[in-house]
Amino acid sequence: MKAKSELMREKILNGVVELFIEKGIENVTTRELTEHIGVSRSHIYHYFKDWQSLSIEAVANFMRSELAEFRTIITPLPAIQKLQEFIHGMISEEPDPTRKLYGSLWLLSTHNGAYAEQMQFFLDEWHKVLTYIIDSGIEEGVFQRVDVHRTARQLDAMLFGYSEHLFTLPSSAALLQAKEDIESFIEMNLLSDNINVI
C-alpha cells in the first residue's frame, strides 16, 4: 500500500513539473493537472494539502534532480570543462526547455516568501557548484588564486543577466556578444594563461 501511495505521489509530482516546464508555474491549474495525469482533484489533494505545497515540492524535487545530475556529469572532468558545462547550461544556442519553470519561480519569489525561500536555496546550491569549479581550477593550476566566492558571484551575475537577455530578446549577434564578454571576463579574472573557455 505504501509503495502504491509513493508511486501516485511521484506521478502527481512528475505530471505537474511537465506542465510547469511547458506553461510556467503560474499558468497551470489543478484541472489541467487532473486531465494531464488522469486522476481526480480530490485524489491530488489527498496527497498534498494545497496547490502551493504541491508546486513547491514538485519544483524542489526537479531542481534537486537537476543539481545532482549536473554534479555527476562534471565530477570527472577537468576544471576548464567543468566551467564550460556550467556556462553552456546558461548560455546556449538551443533554448532551455526548463526556462519557463525557472522564470516562473523567479517571478513568484518576488511576492511569495515560500517560493523566495526555495529560490534562494537553489541559488545558493548553484553558487556552491560554481565555487567548487573555481576551486578545482585553482588546485589544477589553470585558474589564478582569486577570491573564489566573489569571482563566482560576478560570473554568475553575468551568466544570469545574459541568459535573461537572450531569453527575452534572442539573436545570434546577442549570443555571440554574450559569449565574447564572458570569455573576456574569465581570461582577465580567472585563467592562468590564455585558454579558450567557451
Rank of each mutant, 00 (worst) to 15 (best):
residue 14 N to R: 14
residue 84 Q to W: 05
residue 163 S to N: 12
residue 33 L to Q: 00
residue 16 V to N: 07
residue 53 S to W: 06
residue 196 N to Y: 15
residue 175 L to G: 06
residue 155 L to E: 02
residue 191 L to P: 01
residue 32 E to Y: 06
residue 188 M to S: 13
residue 63 M to F: 10
residue 19 L to K: 00
residue 66 E to L: 07
residue 74 I to S: 06
residue 27 N to S: 07
residue 71 R to W: 13
residue 122 F to R: 04
residue 136 S to M: 12
residue 162 Y to Q: 00
residue 23 K to E: 04
residue 57 E to Q: 10
residue 113 G to M: 12
residue 61 N to S: 07
residue 27 N to Y: 08
residue 164 E to C: 13
residue 131 T to Y: 01
residue 125 E to Y: 05
residue 145 R to N: 15
residue 139 E to M: 14
residue 6 E to T: 11
residue 186 I to N: 04
residue 188 M to N: 11
residue 59 V to H: 04
residue 90 M to F: 14
residue 142 V to N: 05
residue 164 E to V: 13
residue 189 N to F: 03
residue 151 T to C: 11
residue 166 L to Q: 06
residue 166 L to R: 08
residue 58 A to Y: 05
residue 137 G to D: 02
residue 37 I to H: 03
residue 156 D to Q: 10
residue 53 S to L: 03
residue 154 Q to F: 10
residue 88 H to L: 11
residue 183 E to R: 02
residue 31 R to E: 05
residue 18 E to M: 13
residue 140 E to Q: 01
residue 39 V to H: 00
residue 159 L to P: 07
residue 4 K to G: 12
residue 129 V to W: 08
residue 183 E to N: 08
residue 12 I to W: 03
residue 106 W to S: 15
residue 131 T to N: 08
residue 21 I to P: 09
residue 91 I to G: 05
residue 1 M to H: 10
residue 45 Y to I: 01
residue 3 A to M: 15
residue 103 G to W: 04
residue 25 I to F: 05
residue 76 P to V: 05
residue 18 E to R: 13
residue 97 P to G: 08
residue 157 A to C: 03
residue 27 N to W: 03
residue 112 N to S: 07
residue 123 L to F: 06
residue 164 E to K: 14
residue 82 K to L: 07
residue 120 Q to T: 09
residue 103 G to H: 01
residue 96 D to W: 03
residue 92 S to Q: 09
residue 72 T to F: 13
residue 85 E to K: 15
residue 18 E to A: 13
residue 66 E to K: 11
residue 46 H to P: 09
residue 108 L to Y: 04
residue 72 T to G: 12
residue 152 A to V: 01
residue 129 V to K: 01
residue 92 S to M: 06
residue 148 V to K: 09
residue 91 I to W: 07
residue 186 I to M: 08
residue 49 K to W: 04
residue 192 S to W: 10
residue 147 D to W: 10
residue 129 V to M: 04
residue 80 I to F: 02
residue 157 A to G: 08
residue 51 W to I: 11
residue 125 E to P: 04
residue 62 F to V: 09
residue 182 I to V: 06
residue 89 G to E: 02
residue 169 L to W: 11
residue 133 I to E: 04
residue 146 V to G: 06
residue 192 S to I: 12
residue 189 N to W: 00
residue 71 R to I: 12
residue 168 T to G: 09
residue 5 S to W: 14
residue 161 G to C: 02
residue 96 D to R: 08
residue 93 E to A: 11
residue 144 Q to R: 14
